[in-house]
Design a protein around this nucleic acid. Structure first.
Length: 271
DNA sequence: GATCTATGTAGAT
DNA sequence: TCTACCTAGATCG
């Protein structure tokens, strides 16, 4: 689920269904119980996403910070709330909806300085209007690390995950292992603009689609294939399958502990 | 039913 | 570079 687009989508849903209401906050599982008690019954002022982080503003300088990590899920449903099933870290119950949070990497109550520190360590988020791509560019241009590594570094760009990184590199013909310092600025600007378009579409649709119409299998007469994440992609998790554009088998390796996918023909290494 | 895997990150080594 | 975190869906047998 959780690349930045999913968290922004979640923030919108929480905003729509809980904001301006008094919310009963509990921790059926117990691990968030002490913090939940401090905000139980407070009015939710707003829900916002910054990269992959979700912040719920409960007023009086109190923010609930949620990071879903790889496993986490926040499910929202219509009342009435039933008994908790499984390990529910946090439950929100409002008059119009209720939500259960399971398996998050983080669920904390933040004070203002903690919230500020969190936001300060995040790079620009393509889904936020005020984001400055030059901040990311300065870090990329100063680094010998592979572009693929830099794109996943939340201090460089906030919200990009393993799918968007693989796909945006493919769409711009960039070798994932190219050192950041060797990436042309024009290419970075184009990638940033593309990330904004792709991730906004992801928020709107609730899935990641990156394949241009002319490359869709459907346009060749076959039914469109959806991977199990529901989207249509060029290279992510397509190791060994033919590239949609040139037919070369998609390559895969592990970089920094994460799977990396690319087309060696469409994204050639510099020689 | 057991095992594998994952759209992520922090912290230890 | 490695491990822990700790959930659930897919896959294996």
């Amino acid at each position: 689920m959780p690349e930045g687009h999913a968290v922004h989508r979640l923030a919108r849903a929480v905003q729509r269904r809980f904001a301006a209401d008094a919310i009963a906050v509990t921790s059926p599982q117990g691990r968030f119980a002490a913090s939940a008690a401090r905000i139980d019954g407070a009015t939710l002022r707003s829900a916002q996403a910054y990269g992959k982080h979700l912040l719920l503003d409960f007023g009086a300088q109190r923010w609930v910070h949620v990071h879903l990590g790889i496993y986490g899920r926040l499910t929202i449903a219509d009342p009435p709330a039933g008994p908790p099933v499984g390990a529910v870290r946090m439950r929100l119950v409002g008059p119009r909806a209720w939500a259960d949070l399971r398996g998050p990497a983080a669920c904390d109550l933040l004070a203002p300085q903690e919230r500020a520190a969190l936001l300060a360590r995040l790079g620009p988020d393509p889904l936020r209007r005020d984001a400055d791509p030059d901040r990311a560019w300065r870090r990329i241009h100063a680094s010998r690390a592979p572009v693929a590594t830099l794109l996943m570094d939340q201090r460089v760009v906030a919200g990009v995950g393993n799918i968007y990184r693989a796909e945006v590199l493919f769409r711009h013909g960039v070798d994932p292992l190219l050192p950041g310092i060797a990436l042309p600025e024009q290419t970075w600007q184009a990638m940033w603009a593309d990330l904004r378009v792709l991730m906004r579409a992801g928020v709107r649709d609730g899935r990641i689609d990156t394949v241009r119409r002319e490359h869709e299998p459907a346009s060749t007469g076959r039914a469109p294939r959806r991977d199990r994440h529901g989207g249509e992609v060029y290279v992510y998790r397509r190791a060994g399958q033919p590239c949609h554009v040139c037919g070369t088998p998609v390559a895969a390796t592990v970089l920094g502990g994460r799977n990396l996918f690319w087309c060696p023909t469409c994204q050639p290494a510099r020689t």
